[in-house]
Design a protein around this nucleic acid. Sequence first.
DNA 1: TAATAACATACTGAATTAGTAGGAGTTCGC
DNA 2: GCGAACTCCTACTAATTCAGTATGTTATTA
Lengths: 147, 147
Amino acid sequence: MYISTKTGYALRAMIELALTGDKQPLSIAELANRQQLPSKYLERLFSLLKKSELVKSRKGTNGGYLLAREAETITLQDVMHAVEESHYYTYCRHQKIDADYCQGLSCHLRGFWDRIGTDLESYFSNINLQSIINKYIRGDHEANLFE
Amino acid sequence: MYISTKTGYALRAMIELALTGDKQPLSIAELANRQQLPSKYLERLFSLLKKSELVKSRKGTNGGYLLAREAETITLQDVMHAVEESHYYTYCRHQKIDADYCQGLSCHLRGFWDRIGTDLESYFSNINLQSIINKYIRGDHEANLFE
DNA sequence: TAATAACATACTGAATTAGTAGGAGTTCGC
DNA sequence: GCGAACTCCTACTAATTCAGTATGTTATTA
């Protein structure tokens, strides 16, 4: 189990937006330059972030992206979910069991995997951009990562 | 982020072994049949489980596999780690940062991803085969999934 | 109106996953 | 000892996802 670079890239860019604030939008080119990320790839990630309404955009000259909500309200779960578009289940894709044919051990384990899924989801939902910034970017060791 | 079918398959097979006990080994053929899994694929998974010393084997007629330790001492973390052989980091493979060139935001986030990694590892390490069986196979709703 | 930047789509190569095939080496029961 | 029943080992294939590139269209603004 691992967390994809997609999520890693998206998080870095989102934090960059949060640090900039909403004075003015940041363009993909600027974001890619600051974070040393491939700009075309970032562009695609941002179209996903926008679809999930985590960022808003302004077209044309001096355009770019802004956070759509306050950094405190955007969680790691939000970012991961927006960007990882796999059409399999996010957790436990081996759980594609036909409900009509639900019997035996693998069926009993369905409840187990559901539990794992909700636990992880709740874990990632309790980490927001602002707390990451406070603790790891600003380096406030007193700060709590979880809200 | 998701949990692979590899892990799902391996867990089912390991639970089957735990339920059988150590009276006699279970062959791959028998396991594959009971769990409706592709036997050749299971075979490969078991070579990994054995390499990690989670199971022991007996060759020849009436041979097969047994748990190498008590079900209480085998965790989901153990199974996942044994079976997911990717040579990337288990968590956060986008963290392949050259330490000599560690600067800026992505470097600060290294600490963050390390924290995520250890949190997840500790989560999965607190779930063992026996507690899964108690709670989800035997259906004891009073049982605690975590030790 | 021209520059700028988001938006859209389609493509590539590499890695991993999931599963198959065939055979070599061990051990057991007879 | 011999053959059946196993594990064990290596190499292959197909499908999927990941990471990144290329090209062009649309909207905004200076």
